[in-house]
Structure formats: C-alpha cells, structure tokens
Design a protein around this nucleic acid. Structure first.
Lengths: 337, 337
DNA sequence: GGCAATCTTGTTATCGCTAACACTTACCGT
DNA sequence: ACGGTAAGTGTTAGCGATAACAAGATTGCC
C-alpha cells in the first residue's frame, strides 16, 4: 500500500511524529531516566506506529561497540563442540545479543588469529573462543584483542577469563565407578593429547588409578572419532586382561562397543565401558552406555555471564568458572568375570 | 609500547600518511579502476604500516548494507541440521562473509519471524533460512524481508529461492535397495510429518513401493530421535512379517537396531535396516548401517551461490537447486529369511 | 597546437545515531 | 522573593565510511 516504503523510518521520523527531538527518542530507546513519562509514552507510540527499528550500524559507529558477540570454534560435527556452540548461541540470543560465528577448519595459530581478526573487523562487543588446544591459546596470548574475551576449555594457566568443564573430575568419576564395580584396573582410550580436554581426562583417570593403588595400564591414544575407537577396540578385544575401559568420548565408545561385539566380547559381562559426553544416542547404544555428562548449557551460560560482566564493568578481573560433570549410569558397566 | 593505541586508525589516518585524500583510500579499498598504480601502492603501504582495517559499521551505515549473512536455523544437535549449519558457515567464511546465526528454539511462526527481524536489525546483506516446516515458510511468505533470501529444505511451491536435498529420491533409493534384496515390502519410520523432509521421504518410499507393486504397510511416525526410533522398533520387533525397515534418519535407525537387538531379531539376517543422513558413526553401529548420504556441503555451497547471485544482480530470478543424495551400502541389509 | 574526452584526485554532503552541552522550566530552602 | 539544583528537552558536533560532484592533469585526435 505504502508507495514509498523504500526507506525504513529513522529516528527523526519518529521524532517528528511524536513532536519531540530525535535526541529524546534516543533517550527513550536507551532508557535514560530524565524523560517525562508522558513523553516516553508518546515516543513509544510513534515507534510502534512507524514500526521503527534502530539502525545498529549507526549506533555501532558512534559508540564504537556493537551488540554482536563473536564466537570462534572449530568447524566440527562432534557432539561436544557442536553442543557448546548451540548452547552459546541460545544463551546469547536470550540476552539480546546477536552472535557471529567464525568457524575455523583447524585450530592452529593462523586460523584462530584470522577468525579473531575477522570478528574484530566487525566490531564485535566481545569474543568467545573455544580453545581446547595450546595453539589456540597461544594465538590469543599475543594478540591485542581489545575487547572482552572469554575462552572455553582453554588452559587455566593463561591469563584470560575462562570457563571449563571439569574434565579431570569427570574422568575420575568414570574411573572410580569402574573400580567400584570391582575391576582391578581401568584402561583408557584418550583423545588427541594436544587437546586440553584429552590431557585432563588422562590426568583424572591416572589420578584415580593411583589413589586406588591400581596398576596403570599403557595409554591408548586415538582421535575423537568412532573410527579410532573401533581401531583401539580391536586391539583391546584381543587382550583378556582388559575388563574395563574408559573412553574419552561417546563416539569412541561406540566404535569400541562395535569392536567388542565383533570379537565376541560381551559388554558388560566380559568388559565394562564408560564414555564421556552423554550424546543423546548413548542411551540407545548396545548396550546403553554409562557415561559422563558435562552440562554444556551451564558452560555456555557461565561464559556469557562472564563476558557480560566484562562488558558492563571494564575493571572486572579475569575470572574462571569450572563446571562439574555428572555420571550417568546405564548398562555398560558390571562387575568383572 | 604504543602509548595511544587507544583508537584504531581510520581512513583519514591512512590518507594523511599516504599523502592523499581519504576518498582515494576508499577507492583503493574498493578496487575502483581509476586510481594510478603508484598511488594505489602508496595507499596499500600506508594501510599495512598502520594495520588499518575498515570500520564495517561506518560502511554499513552509508551503504545500507553489510558483509553479514544471517542464518536462521533450529537450535539442534541433530546431525542433519547441525551439519548444514556448519557447512554453511564454512562456505560463507570462504566467500569473505561473516555469518550471524540466529537459532530458534522452535520452528513456529513467531520464532522464525523474531529471528529474521533480529537479523534485519543488524542490516544483514542476505538471509538463509533452514525452513523444513510449513510454519517457517509461512512466516517468510508475508514478511517484507527486503534482502536476498534463500531457504534450505523449504517448500518448492513457494516463490523464494530454494535449495533442497532430493529427499524423495533418497527415500526411493533406500526402498528400492531393500526391495532389490528380495524383501516383499518395506516399512518406514518417518520423521514428524509436518517436516517437509519427512513428508518427501514418505512420498519417495511410498512411490517406490507402488511402482514395484508392493504392499504398502502402515506408516510409523516418530520424531527424529533415537528414542523414538527405539519405541517404534519395539513395536516392529514383535511383528515377524517385518523384514525390512527404512528409517527416516540414522538416529532413529540406531534406536531401531537397539530394539531389534533386545528382542533377539538379528540385523540383517532377520530384518534389514536402511537409515538416512550417514552420520559419521553409522559405520560403527551394530551392524554397520546402510544409509543415504545427503551432500550437506553441496547444499550449503549452492545456497551461498544463489544468495551471492542475488546480491550482485538484483534482478536474479528466484531459483532452485536440488541436490541428489547417494546410497552408502554397509552391512545392515540382506535378503529375507 | 587546441579542444574535447578521459583519467585521477579532492571536496563536500550524508547515512542514523549518541555524546556533550545549552537552555528552559519547576521546585527547593531560607 | 531569590539564587541554586535538578529535571526535561533541544541543538550541535561528530563517529568513519561512500556517493556525487567538481576540478585539475593527461591524453587523443584532427
């Protein structure tokens, strides 16, 4: 109907309609205290009537800051990282922030640096980096970011604000659960050791074994995939002394179950398995998988809160939050033999 | 070192250093033809020396357009949607676009409309909506978007530019594969019927059955989860006449396998199963799952290309691209009996 | 060699908003 | 009644880029 719907209304249009200056409109928009209630209502009405929406670019230009949060993450369909990303988007959206995602193919220095710079280009208000390997942390270390930064699953040694899942505690819980079922020791299939996640899970596993005075079997390293879990499983399946295995994630555990099944080793009668992540499918593995569930939503929320705190209060100190995972018992663990 | 690293350099700073006007700098940045080579080099050098990076907000303000592409998708850890999203981010980043993700909790009209509006607020240059249900399409239909729009897995009846996986062809391939193995008919566990994906897979399945003159068993509907696949499986497992099942996705198929396993029905000896999606774990199910693989990267690339075409050429006609999936044979299909 | 056409560059206005300041009115205490 | 403070509003000046136009430099052609 409107012939000249060409340009969307600007603040001055609202101002004219409401009979005030554009600055007053701006004040209403930004909830400034010193506006008479009546004026406020008039402006609000005009905004509604015109369907006015502030131009973020203009605001960003003048304030030098946007309502955009950048996330840097590895481009991956692995459940853990993908969930984290989804949870973060959700949390940020609820807080009224738009989210710009920069996925990187690899987590090396240049990729991370590039993704961060692309975000900086866009004048993001803050940055979340899922940085589970050293190279990612390194890239951030000597980079003048200039905006609030939160890393997820990074290295606690670093200076930046950080949220992590307590990987070691989760691994410890998994290991102790297997020990408590009566197993003499627990084997571990780890993730790539340059991942902090993997390193801490190893540490937790080893710590639990040491505390229990159990023998520490050689570490079996793999990547995070089902395929690598399967390969590891084929080896383990041939060793009768292996009665309990803690896999660094559920994908691996799936591969493991398949390998055991092929070799006629029954889970949990012959060998017990615990995973990590609690993928939605874990309850439908054969058998249902006992696993460790990190609370990705909590991680994301904590990360966002920390970021927002830095946004509001420049002087907010670097901070860290550790989220404890929980053990989910299903049917893949039983006493040995 | 730099005491006043406070403000990042602007175009005028570059201009001053290069001894030209800021407009010339702008021309260099935008690859305008009429700039002397020597000047161009001088400006480039100044840019490099200062580490200058253009302010996107300022550009967006004056041009009314950003280098930002918005994606609207359901917040989900399901493999299909998540892969699509990841693939799209990847493709867009490679094309030099930033990606703003607006995940929505549900795919109803308001959620979609809200997410679209939030993106519009930010002056995205274009919009990609993963709109696999009618309500999503509806929301877009009567919404003056005003920017190029591409829908993924939407309804071909609609007027907007569209990229889809050829769900029906995939379903047909799955069904025919089972028929070719000698099964008299094929049962189907579908996704929620309000999803186009689900509807077309049903159509493909039914079409293949009709063409083969096979009896059409009642449709078993489920959601996309392993859990619902398991529930459906428990029912099917009790029916000896069921020898072949096509599940609408691999998650369901996993639940199905578990149910069959519990009831002592061996796959593939007693019953054959085909899934859809080819999740990375499918090869490690028990048994390895024969499934249909949609090429998510191709979908994302096509979507982006279509969007870019609209961006460059206002008059580009609405277009559609259909990506054909392929059958991946593994070990979950065998002749009956 | 002279004039038009073209290339190269600079000047000015403008996008839509917020910050800073100025101004008016109302209310306070003495 | 009067200066002083605070509340409410308007005016002006940018933020950092592009667009439109203007103007000087160079080229081409007869």
């Amino acid at each position: 109907m409107d012939v000249k719907a060409a340009r969307s209304p600007a603040m001055t249009d609202v101002a004219r309609l409401a009979g005030v200056s554009h600055q007053t409109v701006s004040r209403v928009l930004n909830d400034h205290p010193n506006v008479r209630e009546q004026t406020r209502l008039r402006v609000r009405a005009a905004i509604a009537e015109l369907g006015y929406r502030p131009n973020r670019a203009a605001r960003a230009l003048v304030t030098g800051r946007s309502q955009l949060i950048g996330i840097v993450a590895q481009n991956s369909t692995l459940y853990g990282p993908a969930s984290l990303l989804a949870a973060f988007e959700q949390a940020a959206a609820e807080a009224g922030f738009a989210v710009s995602v920069g996925s990187v193919g690899r987590l090396d220095r240049e990729s991370i640096a590039g993704a961060v710079e692309r975000h900086l280009d866009q004048r993001v208000a803050g940055l979340v980096v899922i940085a589970p390997v050293k190279s990612a942390d390194d890239a951030l270390e000597d980079m003048p970011v200039g905006v609030p930064l939160v890393t997820i699953d990074g290295d606690p040694q670093r200076s930046h604000t950080l949220v992590t899942v307590d990987q070691a505690a989760g691994a410890r819980a998994a290991t102790e659960h297997l020990l408590a079922a009566g197993h003499r020791t627990v084997w571990h299939i780890s993730g790539p050791v340059d991942w902090y996640d993997a390193a801490w899970r190893i540490e937790g596993w080893r710590g639990a074994l040491e505390d229990a005075g159990a023998e520490i079997p050689p570490l079996v390293t793999a990547d995070w995939s089902a395929s690598s879990g399967y390969d590891a499983g084929r080896m383990l399946a041939r060793m009768p002394e292996v009665t309990a295995v803690f896999a660094a994630n559920d994908h691996q555990a799936l591969g493991l179950l398949r390998a055991f099944s092929e070799h006629g080793r029954r889970v949990p009668q012959d060998v017990s398995v615990v995973g990590f992540d609690d993928v939605p499918e874990a309850a439908y593995f054969i058998p249902p998988l006992t696993t460790i569930r990190p609370d990705f939503d909590a991680v994301a929320q904590a990360g966002l809160d920390l970021l927002l705190a830095q946004l509001t209060d420049e002087a907010a100190p670097p901070n860290r939050v550790v989220i404890a995972p929980t053990l989910v018992e299903r049917a893949s663990v039983a006493p040995p033999g």
